[in-house]
Design a protein around this nucleic acid. Structure first.
Lengths: 147, 147
DNA sequence: TTACATGCAAATAGTTTGCTTTTGG
DNA sequence: CCAAAAGCAAACTATTTGCATGTAA
C-alpha cells in the first residue's frame, strides 16, 4: 500500500516482468519455489534468489500480496483486491472467497478501536478440507494443488 | 477440535503441564523459543525440541491454537475461544480483538458454500502498527513484545 | 555509464527427527 | 514394567545474503 519513493528508479527487468505477469495471470496462490520452476523454463538462468527478491519488492510496492495462512511456506497472490481465502489443511490448496469491502472496513475499524493499532491491512482465512481431499483424490502437496 | 483416541494414553509430564500452564496463563502470543526460555528457568534440562513436540500435540488435541499471522515464526495462543488478532508489522506484537460467534459462523458458511471446502476453522488477522511502535518506542522484536 | 539487479553459493533461522535414556501410569 | 516422552545433536527446509558480474535506462 505504501509506495517507496525508490520505486521510481526500479528497473523492469526481464525476470521481474515475467514474475509479475505469471503471478497475476494465475488464479492459484503459488509458493516462490513453484513460481521459480515455472519461470525457469522460459527464463534461462532464472534463479530462486531472484524470485524471492522480486516477490519481496513487489509486495512492498503493494503490487502483490503475501499469504502466511498455509503454514511453513509463504504463498503469493497476484490479486490485490479485497477477498478472503480458504486453505486445505491437507493439501495446502488455497481458493478465493469473495470479500465484502464494507464488512472489511467495519472490522478493521473495530480492530483499531479495540487495540490502538493503526490498521492498514487484514486477512481472513478459513481452514478445512478441499473437495479433492474429501474424496480422497490426493493426500499430499502436489503441483496440481496450485492449479 | 478433533480429539485423537490416542490422547487417552498421553502422559502428563512435568514439561507438558508446565508448558500448557504457562501458555494459558499469559495474554501474549509467544513463539516456541520464548516459551522455551521461560520454562528453562523452572524446568531444569527442558529442551526446545520438547517444547515443539508438545506444542504440536496440544494443537492437535485442540487445547491450544497455532498462529501463522506473524510471518516466519509460528506463534501460539492458549485461548481457544473465538477471537481475532491484530499483528504489529514492525515488532510482531499480537493482541486480541473480541470475536463475534455469529459473524464467524456466517462467514465460515459462506466460505463453505463458495468453495465446497468442509470448513472447520478460521482466523481473522489485522495488520498495522502498535501504539508503542507508533511512538517510536521500539523498532525490533523484543522480549517485551510478548508481554 | 552506473546504480540497480542478477546468479550462484554459502549462510541463517525455524522447526523436525533419530537415537538413547528417562519416566509416568 | 514398558510405551510414551525427554534430551541432545544432527538434519532439513524455506528464505536471505555476500559478492562478482551483467544490464536497463
Amino acid at each position: 500500500m505504501i509506495l517507496d519513493k525508490a520505486e521510481t528508479h526500479r528497473r523492469n527487468t526481464r525476470q521481474r516482468v515475467a514474475l509479475l505477469e505469471l503471478l497475476t495471470s494465475v488464479t492459484c496462490h503459488p509458493s516462490a519455489q513453484w513460481l521459480y520452476e515455472q519461470l525457469a523454463a522460459s527464463c534461462p538462468g532464472m534463479s530462486l534468489a531472484t524470485v524471492y527478491r522480486n516477490l519481496s519488492l513487489l509486495a512492498k510496492e503493494g503490487k502483490i500480496r503475501t499469504l502466511h495462512c498455509a503454514g511453513d511456506t509463504v504463498r503469493f497472490d497476484g490479486d490485490i483486491g479485497i477477498h478472503y481465502h480458504v486453505v486445505c489443511s491437507q493439501c495446502g490448496a488455497i481458493v478465493d472467497i469473495p470479500g465484502d469491502t464494507g464488512e472489511s472496513t467495519r472490522l478493521c475499524e473495530l480492530a483499531h478501536r479495540t487495540s490502538g493499532y493503526v490498521v492498514s491491512d487484514h486477512s481472513f482465512d478459513f481452514y478445512g478440507i478441499c473437495p479433492d481431499c474429501q474424496s480422497g483424490n490426493h493426500t499430499v502437496l502436489k503441483d496440481h494443488q496450485f492449479l
